[in-house]
Computed example of a mutant assay.
Amino acid sequence: MAAIRGPVRRMRPALAAAALSFLALAAATPAKADLRLCNKTDGTISVAIGYKAADGWRSEGWWNIGGSKCGTLLTGALASRYYYLYAVDSQHGGEWGGKAFMCTRRKMFTIGGVENCVARGYERTGFFEVDTAEQRSWTVHLYQPTQKGNGAK
């Protein structure tokens, strides 16, 4: 084993204090809280979300999430207990849906309100409910889709 030659330098007190402050700040930073969706199929799926916002019900879409990948639908701490999702696998067929009807459209969208979707020029789509149990962060895993029901687990 070779000997280390040269002077041994000590960390300056100010630099050491700065390093400790950085480490303390990093440790105090809260964990990231998001609503995430993991696609457990081998195809890309398109996902829409519905939720109660400060100004009423809102639906948004589309997030395209590749096979065996996860994506973030909402960033930050979750403000509600219940969220609603609809997903479709247009490559292989099938959907994840439910009985909570909200408005969607084929292109990217943010739509306020859930009433009179068709009269307002949107599609009326059945979303399935996700109960986050009032957690700050939640991940939904989607497995094989079904044409008529809820494929979420």
Rank of each mutant, 00 (worst) to 15 (best):
A133D: 13
E123Y: 08
A119F: 06
G112A: 14
T146N: 09
T110R: 10
T132F: 03
Y122N: 10
L142I: 15
K107F: 11
E123V: 08
Q135T: 13
V130W: 01
A119Q: 14
F128P: 00
A119L: 14
T132Q: 04
N116P: 02
T132P: 02
A119N: 08
A133T: 09
D131Q: 08
E129C: 12
E115F: 09
F109A: 05
R106T: 15
Q135K: 15
T132R: 02
A133V: 10
R106K: 13
R120M: 09
W138P: 00
N116H: 13
T104L: 03
L142E: 01
L142F: 09
E129A: 15
Q147I: 11
G113L: 03
M102L: 15
E134V: 08
M102C: 03
R106I: 14
N116Q: 12
G113F: 01
T132L: 04
A100D: 11
T125R: 03
A119R: 10
C117P: 03
R120I: 07
L142H: 02
F101Y: 14
G121N: 05
E129T: 15
T125D: 03
R124S: 15
D131S: 09
M108K: 07
G113W: 01
E129R: 12
M102S: 05
T132M: 04
R105K: 14
I111P: 00
T139H: 05
T125F: 02
R106V: 15
G112T: 12
F127N: 01
R124G: 01
I111C: 02
T125H: 03
A100T: 13
V114C: 08
E123A: 12
T110H: 09
F109M: 09
T110N: 09
L142Q: 02
R105F: 05
R105D: 07
A100G: 06
S137R: 05
H141I: 15
A133F: 10
G126S: 09
Q144G: 10
Y122C: 07
Y122V: 07
I111D: 00
M102V: 04
W138K: 01
N150I: 07
F128L: 10
Y143V: 11
T110F: 07
E129S: 13
K148V: 14
F127W: 03
D131L: 11
R105Q: 15
R105H: 06
W138T: 00
C103D: 02
V114M: 09
Y122Q: 07
M108N: 10
T104M: 05
E123D: 15
V118E: 10
T125Q: 06
K107E: 14
F101V: 13
T110C: 08
I111K: 01
G121E: 03
W138S: 00
V130C: 06
S137I: 02
G126I: 04
E134I: 07
R106F: 15
F127C: 03
A100H: 14
Y122F: 15
Q144C: 07
W138R: 00
A119T: 13
D131H: 08
H141C: 08
K148I: 14
Q144W: 09
S137A: 12
S137F: 04
E123C: 06
G149Q: 04
W138M: 01
T125I: 12
T139W: 04
R106H: 12
R106C: 05
M102A: 11
P145R: 03
N116I: 02
Y143D: 11
I111Y: 00
C117L: 06
T139G: 05
G121Y: 05
T110A: 13
V114A: 11
K107R: 10
Y122D: 08
Y122R: 04
G126N: 07
E129Q: 14
